[in-house]
Write a protein that binds this DNA or RNA. Sequence first.
DNA 1: GGCTCCCGCCACAAA
DNA 2: TTTGTGGCGGGAGCC
Length: 859
Amino acid sequence: METEKENLFCEPHKRGQMKTPLKESTTANIVLTEIQPDFGPLTTPTKPKEISQGEPWTPTANLKMLISAVSPEIRNRDQKRGLFNNRNGLPKPKDCLHEHLSGDECEKSQPSRKEKSLGLLCQKFLARYPDYPNPAVNNDICLDEVAEELNVERRRIYDIVNVLESLHMVSRMAKNRYTWHGRHNLIKTLEALKIAGEENKYAELIMMIKKKEYEQEFDFTKSCSIEDHVTKANTDQNGHADMSFVELPGVEFRAASVNSRKDKSLRVMSQKFVMLFLVSTPQIVSLETAAKILIGEDHVEDLDKSKFKTKIRRLYDIANVLSSLDLIKKVHVTEERGRKPAFKWTGPEISSNPIGVNPIISFPTSDMEVRQPSIENCAKNLFATHRKSNFTRHPSLIKLVKSIESDRRKISSAPSSPINKADSSQNSEPFPSKMAQLAAICKMQLEEQSSESGKKAKSQLAGSGPCKPVAPLDSSVNAEPELPPPPLVQPLGVVPLFPSPLSSAVPVILPQAPSGPSYAIYLQPASTHTMTPPQGLSPTVCPNPSSKATRSKDCTDGTTERAANDATKPNVSIRPMPQRHGAQNGDTEPAGERGPKRAGMLEDSGSKKKFKENLTGFENVSTTLFPSGYLIPLTQCANLGAESLLPSKENSGTFSPNHRIYSSPIAGVIPVTSSELTAVNFPSFHVTPLKLMVSPTSVAAIPVGNSPALTSSHPIPIQHPNSAIVNFTLQHLGLISPSVQVAASSGPGTLPMSPRIEAVSVVPEHAGTQQGRATRYNSPVLGQNQLNGQSIAVMGAQQPVPVTPKGSQLVAESFFRTPGGPMKLMGSPGMDFDGANKTSVGAFFVPQRKLEVSTEDVH
DNA sequence: GGCTCCCGCCACAAA
DNA sequence: TTTGTGGCGGGAGCC
């Protein structure tokens, strides 16, 4: 051991060094010293001296034992020094001590548990590296060295690194080797996580849990149920929890190992944990709640306490690291039961979500746009890997990434988003009216544009490429063209936004679709439906309940197309990421879409079917639909008809007739059936993002939002419609085959946040081709048709389609096949889909329940 | 006594 | 088979 250690120490030097072999003491010391110097402040420190001689530092217990007398002290010293030096400066007493003292004494004296805490260790670790390292420089991290330097077992380093990796602050290059990225990617990562969280509807889950807790208080079983829901939501079709790891577009996981284990990996847990903060309104998350959510995924069944405890333990580990990063801080939440340990997000606020989280409101398009690109760029930059091509990662990851990107793009691009953004403020509630207006305007514009813009759009789409580019993904990317700014603002709520990047995207909106072809908006019902809208969703918008969204594939309205394009773009998310198209997001979709996206990605058609079913079920159930926000041009939709429509559609009636909105319940997907999509009812609340599905063939599937019921909870409206619109338009235009669908949906997650309705933006472009955003389908639900589902998936693809493949099939394939095929990937995706698929979404969502936002906790 | 969470066993996976 | 990873949970420190 010692020898090893010694070596290790040396290595550290590597930085300094070598691993020579000195033994511990010496080496260690040396190393440390050397290192310190090297690292300077960052680095650790000082061990050298003290340690000295003697002792080996072994991190291991054994060593400890052996060395006990001396080593501990030494170790401690070193460590402490390092720490201290680095940051805190812990006490070093030990150092001194150790020498003399026997291990026990020394140890005891020195390092208290706290001193050994993962948090401090992490600080030490962080101290070694600059927050913003020069990419040009080699920032390799040798775990052995670090472990040595910090005098800890490698195991501990893994804990830290895994969490850092989840934030993309480091990336694994090879065995025992990581590359330090610092905080360069942090914001992006957080944005991505936020999106993912929205998609996963974590906000809803949180609410649900809280609610249940409140309601049930202890009832464990109940909790379980919640968890179940959650789980389901998260779960992949496979049943896996969504483990997917969210990666940045650029970032990859090289280490297979990373991907390998899994699901339970600390990385994934870490990301999910972070997502909870990012998505939750209070941004305070209790460990219990987090554990339930995280567990939910897996176990559902297992509810046992042991698992719960284990999860909690893990969360503490993660929390310690995150605390060291100053991303969270411990707080206590007073709940019914009493005080609960919780953590408050103290990191940067991520508005990023264009989508969701901040719902609509928040994002200004510009921001969105900016972000996306930047993000993408960053990711790219940061990660050499490059993505697509490489994708070492799980497909799922890739998918996720793509979806995320797409979402972002959508958002950014999505004109609609603008709406959101702009309006966002408005959004929420106001939307409806505004929405309607906007919609009308949009329509007009769309119409106008449609004719013209479609062309432009296409061109733009193509052009848009520039922005994004990147993504290998492709088609989707293409699809998404980035849109220029959305012209109009769309009312959040209902209205669809259109990103109009291109041109126009005229928002279609139409609240009622007054105009001719009506557009349907789909709302996702969120599973949440039931849930209370935490945030207050206003039911929003609902345009017309009934509307059916029929998405017609057929419809070819130019306008619709535009919308579609937009939508598609968003949907794109699914796609490979390439660039985002702009707009999408704007759409409210984002959240929903995202989820869907993932889902879409993950999901298979089958799942979609399930979703549909589920959705329908949901709808039936509680169904509250939330306006997802997609508008689909009804007129043409007729084609859609069939399939896609979800039962709920009909239900939709609730909504104002004008718009047709479908909300997908969690899964959201509400299939719109037949040609028409019916509008879904919104429950009042949330609008989850809808995912519109276009039925591939015409399906009009409308996608629902992601399954995650959660979403519904989200207050934030999502706008995804775009994709649907896009699809429609494309179809109408003939650009796309009816079968092909673009996914517009955006991440579900986001949506949830705001309940609003999403507007669908239509992309003018006929081009649907372009990418419009595909709308996501959230759920593939489509119902029956797998196709649909696929279509949904496809949608995403489609988006790209336009660009790339247009064929729905193609698209679909893309999606599904996407690499990751594994739905698992990301949880979110999985969740949605899975949920949908698997169980019925309904289950998840338990529709009925309402989540309340009880942020209570937080509070 | 409960909350935290360190520690390290041990299994799995990669090399 | 060896080594790297990391899940997992016992149990101890701390409040």
